[in-house]
Design a protein around this nucleic acid. Structure first.
Length: 929
RNA sequence: GCAGGGGUAGCCAAGCGGCCAACGGCGCCAGGUUCAGGGCCUGGUCCCUUAGUGGGUUCGAGGGUUCAAAUCCCUUCCCCUGCACCA
């Protein structure tokens, strides 16, 4: 079969059919599903298609089981990604342009991508193409984009609602900031930045050391509790330090530090005075907390770009300090130059914290253990981490730490810091743990915004209400359901808007601010209903007033135009959302705010009903990155290579949606074979032309069983199990059916119907094609999946007996290497059945042997009851003697043909043969001769 | 650190109190198929035993609950993910 041609054909037919269009139908059950729309972030790869495909599968299944389905899609373009892309094209960034070309962008398109608007439209259309390629029956009329004016109006309405409810607050905030681009996000995927994705914002305690000369030396530390062990200060002799006015004090620190401080507080001013590090050496200053005079010493490891450029030395607990001190003590020449020999030689380590593992002078211990060479040894970084961690969790403050003596470091840390700040001996500053460079090339620093807008997710009542609702939601997987209340509790206020030039919606009451990408994507499923009306020209942009949204979403006011009424009806029909599907990356970001915003703004009957979280497709050893990903994992290439059906089949079946899967070409190839197998199976079935006989009863019972299981599993969205039943198990059954001589046309037709319809949600193209080829009219996608008849359990059990006998004969033949000419099957006599039933009624194997009394007249009674007792939990109520006999008699021809031997069936009770005693109800004894 | 998830046979991966020596796939072994193009089918794949429905040792490690544990509880080791102006 030419899969690509078939796909093309049905894509077109589906589009023409309008099956994807959604309209409220009074009285018909509805199903609203969507996935968290992708951000404009480059081309997608096969990994992204996994989750999206799940949404389409569910939508298709629901559509084929009597639901009216709404499956809208959208694109998220807020933020600065598209801006960045346009900038790259403008700059002629070769890497980026090659990437665009490799993914099929034409020269004209690339030229046009100098415009941000075009970038957005280009990728939006691209994403839509992927979805169409994969056969989605999505409501294309509802397509929404977060930077389009209609969407903006909706978001502005939403933010006015939040503000009215007092859920927007302003407070100071410190965040990464680029001097050119404004606020940036630091995350490992490095969307906004080009370097430093793993940097963390750290809060330093700035210790102020009084020089007695009208200015302070300042040192930043992450370990304020170690102030008691300070022995000296470190400065770099070659660095020129700055005297800066901070409030009404004068601080001495590095130039870089002044720049950072300026971003974090308003009262910083460079006095223009400079002081060389050298000049500070030998100075005596008062160490805050320790309250004693310590000396300023030279060192090499101090980085003017980190902290304040001056370091307080705690050689007991800081490996760098310890090593620098040791180095200095050895360096007589240097000491003599500064005339510090005596004082430095007299410096002693002051133990202040003790821990089980590292004792009282951890820095010394670890430096010795790790064999640190000198203060420039890179291993010091690691040593510092180890000691910091151990000290923080297991450390206890020593007696020489005043009121903190005996206290755990974990506790003391914060208390010491607070006290120092209170007493005016310390302050706070923020710095990044490593260098961060913006996409534009500038250095990213931390900046304080005094009046940052936040959404007040910390609100107690709101959180509680949301948690309460989450409990009645259908959240998959189960672990996430259990986790959701915790996530909602953990979710604190979120900065929701940023200054500067970003794509997105302006805050309606303060247009300097652009709403940040997460915050403008919380209530948007509601907007899909509206966007359909806008896209089809039934609503004009200027009609999207607050009154309109109030009326449609909240039922407030009255319809100014008839179309308002219509939109409202649609909204009320489709809402709430049945499933919001998204990747696991949304677990602690999008989903909680999605729930909370619904709870805050909409009526309870419109709060979301379900969340479905899917995991990723990874490359070898990591994520397939869409920005770095090659064309090999592109949806188009994969589709051409394996067929879309094979890919969808792969997603649905290869593993649970709730685990990561590794993209392996060989595995996908297997699924392509399975699709081919589906085709050939249906072709074969079409040629069946016989009539029903015994085995058809079994085949039909199996079909019913598979159908029943299929629907059960699909209701839990367990695609893998559903497919196992209705595809893999069914094909096995079919093989067996043929082996047993089945060839009924009627049965074959039923198999075809069940197979194609149940598989249609997963492999829609090939099912549609085969449906047509087997002479059916209409779209299979628009048909109903059959529901099962009552399963004929007895027919199933009869065949199980036949299978057991066949297996038994094979076993015995193999072991004995006997090729029998006569096979005798001994059917367990009636009394054994009676005994078995009675035993099962006892409910436990314990008392089984007490039945001995009743059956003692039978020679095999003891042996049989022992067997029953032992296998108690495996045994089930047996078929009647006649039923078993019938099964074997019917299969007699089959056995004779298979084993080429005479087959005799008889009542074990009427045979004197020793083997006959082994007969068990449902499992005849076998004699080969 | 805080929060969450996980460790199952050579590998991937189901199972989550009895029907489990443990689904399925890959790999490997044997056999079949007038079979040559990343085929298909049958059987085997922890050890032993055997005219089949039997025994022993397994599900990171160590304890415990139970008539019964891969499955529940405790302790312990190891791995992964998230931690917020990122979608």
């Amino acid at each position: 079969m030419d899969f690509q041609a078939v796909e093309e054909k049905w894509r077109k037919k589906w589009l023409e059919s309008g099956l994807w269009k959604s309209k409220a139908v009074e009285g018909k059950p509805k199903f609203f599903i969507h996935f968290a729309y992708p951000g404009v972030s480059g081309f997608l790869h096969v990994g992204h298609m996994r989750g999206y495909s799940y949404a389409d599968m569910i939508a298709r299944y629901k559509r084929m089981t009597g639901f009216n389905v709404f499956f809208p899609v959208g694109v998220h373009a807020s933020g600065n990604q598209a801006i960045g892309f346009a900038k790259k094209v403008n700059q002629g960034d070769e890497k980026w342009i090659n990437y665009l070309k490799a993914n099929g962008a034409s020269d004209e398109e690339i030229e046009k991508m100098k415009e941000v608007d075009f970038v957005v439209r280009y990728f939006m259309n691209k994403y839509k193409e992927y979805w169409e390629l994969f056969g989605f029956l999505a409501d294309w009329d509802s397509l929404a984009c977060t930077v389009f004016p209609d969407y903006n109006k909706f978001i502005q309405w939403q933010f006015r609602k939040l503000k009215d409810k007092g859920l927007l607050v302003k407070k100071p905030y410190v965040a990464p900031f680029c001097p050119n681009c404004g606020p940036v996000a630091i995350d490992p995927s490095e969307t906004d930045i080009s370097k430093g994705g793993n940097a963390e914002k750290q809060e330093f305690t700035v210790l102020k050391f009084d020089t007695g000369k009208g200015y302070y030396l300042v040192a930043a530390t992450l370990r304020p509790e170690t102030v008691f062990g300070q022995t000296n200060l470190w400065v770099r002799p070659d660095v020129e330090y700055v005297k800066a006015r901070v409030g009404n004090e004068v601080w001495v620190c590095s130039k870089e530090c002044v720049e950072k401080l300026k971003l974090q507080r308003e009262d910083v001013e460079d006095t223009g005075e400079r002081v060389k590090g050298e000049e500070l050496i030998g100075l005596k200053v008062i160490a805050p907390g320790a309250e004693r005079k310590i000396i300023v010493l030279p060192s090499e490891f101090v980085d003017p770009d980190f902290g304040t450029g001056i370091v307080t030395s705690v050689p007991s607990d800081a490996p760098y300090d310890y090593q620098a001190l040791m180095d200095l003590k050895k360096n007589k020449e240097l000491l003599d130059r500064y005339g510090l020999r005596e004082e430095v030689e007299a410096l002693e380590i002051i133990p202040i914290i003790r821990s089980k593992e590292w004792g009282e002078t951890p820095a010394k211990k670890i430096c010795e253990e790790m064999g640190i060479r000198d203060q420039n040894d890179p291993k010091l970084e690691e040593a510092t981490k180890v000691i910091y961690k151990a000290g923080f969790h297991t450390g206890v403050m020593n007696e020489n730490c005043g009121e903190y003596a005996g206290m755990k470091v974990e506790q003391a840390k914060e208390m010491v810091k607070q006290k120092l700040i209170q007493e005016g001996k310390a302050d706070v500053m923020y710095d990044l743990s490593e260098e961060v460079i913006c996409r534009c090339g500038a250095r990213v620093l931390l900046k304080k915004t005094p009046d940052q807008w936040f959404i007040k997710y910390s609100d107690k009542e709101w959180t509680e209400e949301s948690k309460k609702h989450a409990r009645i939601m259908n959240i998959l997987p189960e672990e996430y359901y259990k986790n959701m209340p915790g996530v909602l509790d953990w979710f604190q206020d979120r900065a929701c808007a940023r200054l500067g030039n970003w794509l997105g919606t302006k805050l309606p009451f303060d247009e300097r601010w652009t709403i940040e990408p997460i915050s403008d994507s919380t209530l948007y499923p509601a907007f899909y209903v509206v966007s359909r009306f806008v896209n089809t020209g039934k609503l004009q942009l200027d009609e999207l007033t607050d009154e309109f949204f109030d009326y449609v979403f909240l039922g407030k006011g009255s319809a100014e135009k008839p179309v308002w009424e219509e939109v409202k009806k649609e909204f009320e029909y489709w809402y709430p959302v049945d499933i919001n599907l998204g990747g696991k990356e949304h677990k602690t970001v999008h989903f909680p705010v999605y729930v909370m915003n619904h709870v805050a703004i909409l009526k309870p009957e419109h709060w979301p009903k379900g969340i479905f979280v899917n995991w990723f497709v990874t490359g070898k050893g990591g994520k397939i990155s869409k920005s770095k990903g090659g064309a090999s994992a592109s949806p188009q290439e994969a589709a051409a290579k394996y067929s879309v059906d094979a890919l969808r089949f792969y997603y649905a079946h290869v593993a649970s949606p709730f685990v990561d899967i590794e993209w392996r070409e060989g595995i996908v190839t297997d699924y392509k074979k399975h699709v081919e197998n589906l085709v050939s199976t249906v072709e074969k079935l079409s040629s069946f032309n016989g009539v029903d006989f015994g085995i058809d009863e079994w085949m039909n019972a199996r079909l019913d069983k598979h159908l029943r299981e299929y629907h059960e599993f699909m209701n839990e969205y367990d695609f893998r199990k559903a497919i196992n039943s209705v595809f893999f198990d069914l094909l096995k059954d079919l093989q067996y059916y043929e082996k047993r001589g089945g060839n009924s046309r009627k049965t074959a037709e039923r198999v075809i119907e069940v197979l194609l319809k149940t598989m249609a949600p997963f492999t829609p193209f090939v099912c549609e094609e085969l449906w047509q080829r087997t002479g059916h009219d209409g779209l299979i996608s628009a048909s109903e999946i059959p529901t099962p008849e009552a399963v004929n359990e007895e027919a199933l059990e009869r065949e199980e007996i036949v299978k057991r006998v066949e297996e038994g004969i094979n076993n015995i033949m193999k072991i004995t290497r006997v090729k029998p000419s006569k096979i005798t099957l001994f059917v367990a006599p009636e009394w054994k059945r009676k005994a078995l039933v009675k035993a099962l009624e006892l409910g436990s194997p314990k008392q089984v042997m007490s039945l001995m009394e009743e059956f003692k007249e039978h020679k095999a009674a003891a042996k049989f009851l022992q067997f029953v007792s032992k296998k108690y939990h495996e045994l089930r109520k047996p078929l009647s003697f006649d039923g078993e006999l019938k099964a074997l008699e019917e299969a007699k021809d089959y056995f004779e043909k298979t084993f080429n031997a005479e087959v005799v069936v008889m009542n074990a009770g009427e045979s004197g043969h020793e083997k006959a005693l082994n007969a068990v109800p449902g499992k005849p004894a076998i004699l080969l001769e």
